[in-house]
Design a protein around this nucleic acid. Sequence first.
RNA 1: GGGCGGGUAGCUCAGUUGGGAGAGCGGUAGCCUUACAAGCUAUAGGUCACAGGUUCGAGCCCUGUUCCGCCUACCA
Length: 876
Amino acid sequence: MADLPKNYDVHASQKKYYSWWESEGFFGADPEAPGEPYCIVIPPPNVTGSLHMGHALDNTLQDILIRYKRMDGFNTVWIPGTDHAGIATQWVVERMLREEGISRHDLGREAFLERVWAWKEESGSTITRQLRALGVSCDWTRERFTMDEGLSRAVRHVFVKLYNEGLIYRDTRLINWDPIGQTVLSDLEVEHEENFKGEIWSFAYPLADGSGEIVVATTRPETMLGDTAVAVHPEDPRYKDLIGKTIRHPLVDREFPIIADAILVDPEFGTGAVKVTPAHDPNDYEVGKRHDLPFITMLDKSACVNQEGGRFEGMDRYEARKAVKSAMAELGFDRGTKEHLMAVGRSQRSGAIIEPMVSTQWFVRMQPLAEPAIAAVEEGRTRFVPTQWENTYFAWMRDIRDWCISRQLWWGHQIPVWYCDDCGALTVSEEPATCCSSCSSTSIRQDEDVLDTWFSSALWPFSTLGWPDDTAALRKWYPTSVLVTGFDIIFFWVARMMFSGIHNMGEEPFSDVFIHGLVRDANGDKMSKTKGNVVDPLDTIEAHGCDAFRFTLAQYATQGRDISWDENRVEVSARFVNKIWQATRFALMGIEGHDAKAEVELGPYDHWIRARAGQATERIRSALDGYRFNEAATEIHAFFWGELCDWYLEFSKKAIYGEGPAKAGAQQTLIEVFSAITRLMHPVMPFLSEEIWQLLPESVRSESETVMMAAYPTVDDFPKDDRILEDVAFLQECIVAIRRLRADMELSPKVELRILVTGDKADRLPAHAGALAHLAGISSVELLSGDRPEASATTVVSGAELVIPLEGVVDLDAERARLDKEIQKVGKDVQDLERRLGNAGFVAKAPEHVVNGFREKLAAAQIKLDQLQQARGELS
RNA sequence: GGGCGGGUAGCUCAGUUGGGAGAGCGGUAGCCUUACAAGCUAUAGGUCACAGGUUCGAGCCCUGUUCCGCCUACCA
């Protein structure tokens, strides 16, 4: 063991063990195997994407859970996969084509799709390869893709089912149009940009009878080419007489009425008269329906003015805006322009400002689907962690609008609907239709549009398990156990999985939804390529190692809070990894030559660290069970460094460097405790723990060839022993008190001190003389009998006083000064404690243990004060 | 406009039934003590954003104010 390298080679370890785990099939899952089911489906990253910090956090947390549950005897599976990401992927490929100087229309649908598939084949493995670098233990044999054959069948199956149930329908209505991407978007795909600097322009519409004008205001002048009314409030005295009169459009050959609408018009706002463009504004659309106005679509698919715009035809909407304004100014109808802050909707993908348009699209009727999805959370069958996210979920679900699912794209699941050229009937079919279901004509055409990418994502928790077939995996693992994801896709994905799962499977898709924060940069800003503040997880892993990276992520993963990523923390974690390695080296050297059959005698410190390990196990388990990853990581750190390294390894040195049953006892303890902590840390630090596991003695490894299959420690693995915990806590307090005294008196650690001890617990101390010698430089421990030495320092701990003779060790003048300072300080403490205890209400109402705690503390402080004053007197 | 989260040590952040204000980093002082100087020991540093309230007692509960961030909304 002496040849164990002084430093841990993280990269060699990562490479060696990941491929070993994977090739041995340790990630694989068998639905027939015993154990309660525990299943996670990965939030599928974009197939052509690459790993970012969000993925790193999300997947590290999932891996921690899966590894924990796998070790804990559950029949676990973690299903990986990727999403075809319709718009995003098509957008990327179109951009590549543009660089070649061609468009997708030049290629045609078939050739274009070939290009996209080729790009998917080329780049599709990047993200899964990068995920492996994180150490994730997905069952790669079950990897799925949202457009693979099985999932595509699931999509068609659901579409047909919902259509037959009347929950999918086709309708013509106002939708969000992306003029650059040239497709409709759902409300969620529109991002609202607040405080957009625009202007509001007022102009006059002349009455047709020449009797006057009415002034209206707009932020979008060009839409006046599509106006079909001006609305006023029915009670507005200014305009009451104008209601029913006709306006003569000054720019196009049309007349339209002045109408009264109490819902649209706020008489207090602006001029109190509103121009109405039913085909290009959501509010006006409603007005148009209420008043049966004409819907004049005056823009084409690229948001250029069409024939409805008369002489403005062919202009893009912003050119038209200027042209309309100046034309109106020439006619004398301009009534001024003001700056105006407004919100504009942009396409999430192309960035284009959304144009509301009237269009025929496919929709999902949401109301009936949302109701049971709301109930599932209300009734606790699905639980959000932290619970605050339930509000977000409810708010959206309760105010849900129908979901527009068709997209004018080519990359995606083509809508399984065929239109008959002869009779016009629709054929909706899971399998490709060959003739019209109504008139049997073979002259049918499939709908050219594809489905919103989230339509297939919504089926992910069951489609990946084999649905619509009745598979063993589906029976075993649905519903899944927990969904781990960020709050940014609660609406896009979580909510839609909820109603899809409930509607299609009859059961909600997961019992827990754990929502973590976003990874931001050190200043709390969103990471983005344009800002140049993106941290590449692979760079971090390369620099500091995967385990340090994962440990840092876990420590950062506080519930309900975003993460401001500070790369320095990874370096700190890397030091922890090194510390673990160094301690392991010590332990392995210590257990060298261990004879399992030798006579064993466990010493007090052996009992102590076991009891401590039990406490740590309890805390770590409880933290993981509650998704408190930061607590789990912190507890691993606190136990390993603060208890095991700082105290036990030092305590045990005497036995380890000695011989006989005490040595065998310490060796056995080292083996057991290292076996436990190695397993406890494994979910967070898989590589390091595996490396250590492989170095542990055969007696440990015989349980499992890999730590990832070893049993996760339980509290019952360790005896409870409150007496030893208390005893060692007392010893630690003594050691720390002596060290402090030493530092205060500027005594070198090499100066040996004697201590005389008195008090309730005094007789416990001589048994720890060895530890006191090693850890506090104490040469002898005796019970105080008779008088104190004339020159001495006293330090008080709970239950004892330690008297240290100072004759010949210290400068007495300096010591006097020090004592004076301390007397002052302790005096204040005593006063403070007395005041609090003297409070009648405190004694009457505070829990007994709290009151007793104060009493003990006060007693100890008073003793200390007395002793200090006495020592001061002796020195004088 | 509505909603949510946050403001705790110089920095990054913990703090789960209201009862000793904590960790890591950084600072200071002292240590190459035979696993680890990527380490060990000790230590300084905080009106827990502000103002009220409840209580014997508030970082924690209530009310208000303020600053930062996010989500959401059709105000011409």
